[in-house]
Amino acid sequence: MVVNRLDQPRELRRTFRPHYDPEAFGRLSEQFARFLGTARFLVYMTVFITVWVAWNWTAPPHLVFDHYPFIFLTLILSLQASYAAPLILLAQNRQADRDRVQAERDRLASERNQAEVEYLTREIAGLRHALGELATREFIRDELEHLLEDLRRPGERGPDR
């Protein structure tokens, strides 16, 4: 009797499903999607189709690629499109996942920056408040001038003398 235990890994079973590395496949699909979005791809496809059409019109009947007018070319282009669409969608999904991760990082960095700005704002406000309570040079100068005036006036001394 086989007991499924959660503290032990499962035994590997042979299956008929093909095994592939999803990360490698995703990178391949992104490279393919990037290539499909280039002018080089459009030039290659234009040259390919032009050569195909020219050859099928000008070649002797026993050397043409397609004995029926452009059916095989249509099949090739359909096959290319049927593979291109899912690969492009896979690349877009991977990019969307990366964008989500980057947006989360940006949000966290923004929150940290906001907290730092608020802290610095409070510190600046505290410094301004503390500076407001300090005696400035002008205040000390005015007080000294008043004391000197009091000392220069004879007969106007305080009650302790």
Rank of each mutant, 00 (worst) to 15 (best):
D142A: 08
Q95F: 06
E104W: 01
G126M: 11
R141G: 05
Y44F: 12
W57D: 15
I88Q: 04
E143W: 10
D150E: 09
H67S: 14
D99S: 00
L90Y: 04
P60H: 08
R153W: 07
L28R: 09
E23H: 12
N56K: 02
Y83Q: 08
E156Y: 08
Q95G: 05
L73Q: 02
G132Y: 10
H19G: 12
A109S: 13
L144G: 06
T15L: 07
S29V: 01
R13Y: 06
E111Q: 15
E123C: 01
R98C: 01
L148E: 15
E111R: 14
L36M: 14
D106K: 10
Y20W: 14
E111H: 15
F48H: 06
Y119G: 03
L12Y: 09
F70N: 09
R10H: 12
D97C: 06
V64H: 00
F16M: 12
A135E: 09
L134D: 03
Q95D: 11
F41H: 07
A130P: 01
A135V: 15
E116Q: 11
L36A: 07
L148K: 12
P61F: 07
E138Q: 08
R141L: 10
A115P: 01
L79V: 13
L28S: 06
F139M: 13
V64G: 00
L87I: 06
I140K: 13
L75N: 15
V64C: 02
P154C: 14
L12M: 07
R105D: 06
L75H: 12
L75C: 13
T46A: 13
L63F: 08
G155T: 04
N56V: 01
T50Q: 13
L73D: 00
R107W: 04
T136R: 02
L75V: 10
P86K: 04
Y68K: 15
D66W: 00
L108H: 08
L12F: 07
D21F: 02
D21C: 03
D66N: 03
E145L: 08
R17F: 15
G37F: 02
R94D: 04
T46K: 07
P154I: 15
R100G: 00
Y44M: 08
Q114T: 10
Q31T: 14
N93C: 10
A85Q: 07
A59K: 02
A59N: 02
L77C: 06
E118F: 06
E156L: 10
T38Q: 01
A39Y: 14
L63H: 12
S78T: 10
R13E: 12
W52K: 04
L134F: 06
D21T: 03
R128S: 05
L75W: 11
R152G: 07
G132R: 14
L90K: 06
R122K: 15
D99I: 00
I71N: 15
L77P: 02
P22F: 01
W55S: 05
L90A: 06
A125K: 06
V53L: 05
I71H: 09
H146M: 15
E133T: 09
